[in-house]
Every structure is written in C-alpha cells, then in structure tokens.
C-alpha cells in the first residue's frame, strides 16, 4: 500500500512538472506576442505601412491616390476605413479589422488594407 502511494506521488510530481512547463510556455508565448502591423496597397503596390495598431491615441489619415481618397482610422489594435469617396462604400461598411490576415478592400479605388503578423491561429478545426 505504501509502495503504491509512493509511486502515485512520483507520477503526480511528473505530471505537475509537465503542467508547469506547459504553463510557462503559454505565458512566454503571451509575453512575446508579436505586434500587429498593417499594410496598405494601391493597385497592387505597397504604399504605406502602419507599424503599431495600438497607439495611445486613435488617429486617422487620408490615403490619396489617382482614383480617389480613403480615410483610414487606427485605434485600439484595429484598422477601419472611416470615410471614402468611392461609390459603393463597401470599405466603410466593412468596419474594423484586428486579426492577422484580415483585410479591407476598396474595389473602386483598387485599395487593399491588410493586417500582417503571425499571431492567432489560421483556423480552428
């Protein structure tokens, strides 16, 4: 009986160690989380990048191209198009994007805003 108890304690220790290691890995992952960036493409060419999607103060700027003007807003880790002089306004209605791989497309202005960075799973199966 005593031997059984000893063995159980041994295995409990082994598994607790495993759990602690896993927790440490998870915490490390959290802290070294990559900053998200955004790229703005016009007619397939990169015209501007946003390095920090979480600035202290929200701000917006205009992207002027030969096809028209879009107002891009950056706040709290998200990007959105707050105004546009295109005809369908789909980019404005798209709302905010905040995850890597998401994009807002303004077809009339041939403009793409895409978030880059590798955090977050691609898909949950």
């Amino acid at each position: 009986m005593k031997k059984v108890l000893k063995k159980n304690i041994f295995w409990i220790a082994v598994f607790s160690l495993l759990v602690i290691v896993c927790l440490a890995v998870i915490l490390l992952q959290r802290f070294t989380k990559e900053k998200l960036c955004a790229e703005i493409y016009s007619e397939g060419k990169l015209i501007r990048t946003i390095d920090d999607l979480d600035p202290g103060k929200p701000y917006s700027f205009d992207v002027k191209t030969s096809l028209g003007t879009n107002t891009v807003r950056v706040e709290k880790g998200s990007v959105s198009v707050s105004g546009s002089d295109c005809k369908n306004k789909i980019c404005v209605y798209h709302g905010k994007i905040s995850k890597a791989g998401e994009s807002i497309i303004c077809a009339p202005h041939k403009l793409i805003i895409r978030i880059t960075g590798s955090s977050g799973p691609d898909a949950v199966v």
């Binding site: 598994f15 495993l18 759990v19 896993c22 927790l23 890995v25 998870i26 992952q29 590798s118 799973p121 691609d122 898909a123 199966v125």
Partner: peptide
Amino acid sequence: CGSAIAFSMLPYLLISAV
C-alpha cells in the same frame, strides 16, 4: 494544415491531457 501553428496549441493540449 501544413503549418507549424498546430504546435502552438500543444501546451494547452498537454495540460488538458493531464
């Protein structure tokens, strides 16, 4: 999926496995 992202779930899966 062919991506290393599968392994990022591993610590969570190991804890749940225990």
